[in-house]
Design a protein around this nucleic acid. Structure first.
Lengths: 203, 203
DNA sequence: CACGCTTACCTAACGATATTAGTCTAACGC
DNA sequence: GCGTTAGACTAATATCGTTAGGTAAGCGTG
């Protein structure tokens, strides 16, 4: 069955996503991906530059998935604030596709200058900035608030998935409290907008 | 210079900490540690069970360091709330010893049943529960609040260290906002303490 | 229809990784 | 002073990612 298996970059990334979701993004390996698509590891290099390129592909897909989740959450939110809708959407996405979510975070292999990656992240960020606007936050206030949101939601997802929370009390309830803390804490946060400039360029 | 270098477990962990702080916890390697203590990699096995044991040792030290940081922060806090003092203490510890901080988080190699590890984590947790008490949170409310705190503070530290924030606005200011969001958001959080039981056992 | 070229697979091999086995020597206890 | 042994070494294995080189299928062109 050797030659002409009909492989391509998309199929490789699909398999990598499936493996990452099943066995964990950390455990992802070139050999495993190759085996999943019915080929030997070196053959993947005809379609992909290397393991880093696969990681980058998954990173891109993960960012796009988060932006998509924010987009439908912002459109279909019922009653809830945009902030709450986005928070729940991000956690749901992480639960449904843990490997893709893990890949969506930068890591030590991620270069800091990658325009495509940056753009994908920026798209997701846009929905968060809009959500902050609903709370009355604009300019730098909104950008600080987005950082607070990202830190809290990502931190929760990560600690939960690492089993750092232990058992005993309901994590869903904890997350609900986190969302309320964000809403309440961010809403009143105009106190020290000591700078009047509307918005600097970076998130 | 071969035999009798005067090696022991503590010296190995010290070197591992130094390397993790300098090059990143992810980049830590047995060979690097061995070279740092002036020995070949297999020789480390006479003092340590293996790489996992080194990771566990660093994990333990990282948890102890955080508990220590919480302890002095709680004792020396001036004006600030205990919550704010602990938050700033954790971030400072992470900035001063990034490798030790990274090791303090559980990872895929961390077994979920390790009494010593659990006890070390519990000590740090104690200070946070006390801090929540200052905000009027007890029982399950305090435990949920501790999760919110850990998620937000750890999430911020991680995103910042990964360079996920980009430049443009001051991260110190963002962290100050995060602390205020925690204080404000958690203080009013008695709304739905629908359960009256004081405290279940798990964090 | 045949020939050749490109493409996509393969095996072999390399350097790094953690780890195990086996050797050798120096230092400590009697 | 001498034997035992702890503590170092080299050699070797399995699993990583990666590169080089070989082989054959399928397509295009004469």
């Amino acid at each position: 069955m050797s030659p002409r298996v009909g492989l391509n970059r998309e199929a490789i990334l699909d398999a990598a996503e499936r493996l990452a979701d099943r066995d964990g993004y950390e455990a992802l390996t070139l050999h495993a991906i190759a085996a999943a698509v019915g080929v030997r590891a070196p053959s993947l290099y005809h379609h992909v530059r290397g393991f880093d390129a696969i990681r980058r592909g998954l990173h891109l897909r993960g960012l796009a998935a988060r932006a998509d989740a924010f987009e439908v959450a912002s459109r279909e939110r019922d009653r809830r604030s945009l902030v709450a809708a986005c928070a729940y959407a991000q956690r749901r996405a992480a639960q449904e596709r843990p490997g893709v979510y893990a890949a969506s975070q930068p890591s030590s292999h991620t270069p800091d200058t990658d325009d495509e990656l940056h753009a994908a992240g920026e798209r997701a960020l846009g929905y968060l900035v809009t959500a902050m606007g609903e709370l009355g936050l604009v300019g730098d206030d909104a950008l600080h608030a987005v950082r607070v949101f990202r830190a809290a939601v990502h931190g929760f997802i990560e600690l939960e998935s690492l089993g750092a929370f232990g058992m005993g009390i309901d994590p869903d309830e904890s997350f609900a409290r986190l969302v309320e803390v964000l809403e309440r804490g961010l809403t009143a946060a105009q106190s020290h907008a000591e700078s009047g400039d509307a918005a600097r360029v970076e998130r």
